[in-house]
Write a protein that binds this DNA or RNA. Sequence first.
DNA 1: ATTCTCATTTGACTTGTATCAAAGATTTTT
DNA 2: AAAAATCTTTGATACAAGTCAAATGAGAAT
Lengths: 220, 220
Amino acid sequence: MPVGFNADEMKKIDEVVEKRRRIKQGELLFSNGETFTSLYAIRTGFFKTCVTSADGREQVTGFQMAGEIIGMDGIVSDHHNCNAVALEDAEVCVMPFANVEDLSRELPSLQRHVHKIMSREIVRENGVMMLLGNMRAEERLAAFLLNLVQRLHARGLSQSELVLRMTREEIGSYLGLKLETVSRAFSKFSEDGIIEVKQRYVKIIAPEALKKIFNPQTCF
Amino acid sequence: MPVGFNADEMKKIDEVVEKRRRIKQGELLFSNGETFTSLYAIRTGFFKTCVTSADGREQVTGFQMAGEIIGMDGIVSDHHNCNAVALEDAEVCVMPFANVEDLSRELPSLQRHVHKIMSREIVRENGVMMLLGNMRAEERLAAFLLNLVQRLHARGLSQSELVLRMTREEIGSYLGLKLETVSRAFSKFSEDGIIEVKQRYVKIIAPEALKKIFNPQTCF
DNA sequence: ATTCTCATTTGACTTGTATCAAAGATTTTT
DNA sequence: AAAAATCTTTGATACAAGTCAAATGAGAAT
């Protein structure tokens, strides 16, 4: 939970948390169809959420890291509408949604916070729709890398180096590309001296070049 | 506002509405960057929401019809993050979000309702991501048509006939396709006897065939 | 009515990404 | 440490959708 709460509020918000739960790499935090009871605040670790079509095609809908809230897809139907898989060993705070709603009625600042988290997710997905609908492969990967380092940097990590927690296939699924296309785009960026890649390790050498690829109009 | 409220609650919910507002075809209900103050309940008419990339590419993120709520993208940053354009003359109820939050704290049923509306939008966008990331042109158009008639049918209209409120280009933008591709897919469906098309008018002759295209795994 | 504008359809051709395939690299298992 | 499994890279080729272009159709303006 970020700033904007006083000590008294923080104490109450702490009590929303029912317990902590550890999830091993590869295991599900929740799965499609499962009854919805709680939101989860990620303490440590890294998740992907994905939906599956009736014929088995998988679409990664997001990657979530420490400090982010996961599970809001379940509110509308009281059942989860996606799978949440730990990409590394993780720990989450289980926040029964009934507790969240009860306390939200008492604390306007928490109520506003919950609304913002959901709105942020809507806006993020709008951005992904733009990527998927209008951008070419290299633009998608540039946007993806910039978004990742930005979020990691906000958590005190480097803004130029990162270790990917997901496979090329998972990146591709998120970006609407095949893993080979993702790999080729990585190689291209590397050849052009924009990034340094070694497997999951990525170092961003020329962030402006990445931004320019993501945002071609800035080229004049 | 749908069912699930008693008379007393309905009366209070009515008072959330500040006023009504008419929007002419082609005009903006709100636009990207504008200060966020209110959610809007569509009484009549049809809207599209769209985001624009820095270099001017437009992505339609949704089509909204009577009975739906629009504007939740603005909560996170106090500014709207997309444009909402009326595709036909429309009327909306302006619901200042401060009023919504105040009353939500008083009425748990309204609070839950607001949460569900936002969660529904998140889940809808997950589905669009699946369309954009994994489906081919005809699958996307089939899904689009089925979704439209289903929503129109829920409003008491025909489940087989509809008049499109948007151009081929807008459909294409929503589905991540060019207008020519949309047109070709319409023609293909028409040749195959699945639908009857005449400009904006569409009649669904074989809904099962559409469902089969959207959902190829059901073919055994 | 006639003209003008905008939306739609259709054809011909191009292109970006997918597919198929094989070789390396890395990690896990035994 | 060797073997197995998984992930990644790279090349060759195929294909779905994009682009360009022209004709047609519908609605709005004069």
